[in-house]
């Protein structure tokens, strides 16, 4: 039972709450959301409290994160894209720290539940649609009509563009969710092999070296994936936001 690779994704009610028939209990997921927010905010507040002209280590880290996201957003969406900087920065930090928290044994991975990643993806999706129409009016619909395409081809191209636009939240959220879920399951399965084989005599103990090495390697890989998926989610966010700003470009 300890070997069940799915058990780590189960939600546990810490404080049961219910409003109008909807369960809004404070669960382990809620706890790690709060932990993510508190730890990240506390770190950034502390790191930037000195406002040093010459940054210390913590302040360098905060500045590095700032410039990393600022450059990503500016490259993808131009300098007008900077209006979305707080959103993009928050998304990146939240997902990154939540993913990293998930790497601790016995910790819960907030981003391994599809409802969370879907909510974040839909936040981006609706931001793009609302800001796109607010900023460009009906010109925003040019997004679905690429310039320089002959009229007969548009009959094919426009539906494709529409479908690809509306499938964005799906791919955006599933990519993050599936990566976190699959990575953690794989880790757990290989770690489970060590225990199972260890219980099967001397030969089993010797053989358990193999899944142990695999788990070691996978842990490193998972740290990379945790960062990379936060990066990819943020990068895609920047590109989608660019469509809201420049629907007739690119």
């Amino acid at each position: 039972m300890a070997n069940d690779p799915i058990k780590q994704f189960e939600l546990k009610e810490y404080i049961p709450l219910e409003i109008g028939g909807v369960d809004i209990s404070f669960t382990n997921s809620s706890l790690f959301m709060v932990a993510t927010v508190v730890v990240t905010s506390a770190f950034l507040l502390w790191a930037t409290s000195g406002r040093g002209m010459i940054p210390g280590r913590a302040q360098s880290l905060a500045e590095m994160a700032y410039e990393f996201i600022a450059n990503m957003l500016r490259d993808a969406a131009g300098s007008q894209g900077m209006v979305f900087f707080p959103l993009v920065f928050s998304l990146f930090m939240f997902i990154l720290v939540a993913n990293m928290f998930g790497m601790f044994p016995y910790f819960f991975t907030v981003t391994s539940h599809i409802i969370v990643t879907v909510a974040l993806a839909l936040l981006v999706f609706f931001t793009v649609i609302i800001y796109g129409f607010y900023k460009n009016g009906l010109t925003f619909l040019k997004l679905f009509v690429p310039s320089g395409v002959p009229a007969p081809l548009l009959l094919i191209v426009v539906p494709i563009e529409v479908i690809s636009f509306f499938s964005r939240p799906l791919s955006h959220s599933v990519r993050l969710f599936a990566n976190m879920l699959a990575g953690h399951i794989t880790l757990k399965v290989f770690a489970g092999f060590i225990v199972s084989m260890g219980g099967a005599g001397a030969l089993g103990v010797a053989g358990a070296i193999l899944p142990f090495l695999m788990t070691l390697g996978l842990t490193g890989l998972e740290f990379l994936v945790a960062f990379l998926q936060a990066y990819v989610f943020t990068m895609l966010t920047c590109m989608y936001l660019n469509d809201a700003l420049h629907p007739d470009g690119h």
Binding site: L11, D23, I24, M33, V37, S41, P86, V110, I115, V116
Partner: peptide, 17 residues
């Protein structure tokens, strides 16, 4: 727990933002 997760995500992410 979809409702719970959505609510707590909205609260925590909102505060974070």
């Amino acid at each position: 727990y979809f409702g719970s997760q959505l609510l707590w995500l909205a609260i925590t992410f909102g505060v974070f933002y």
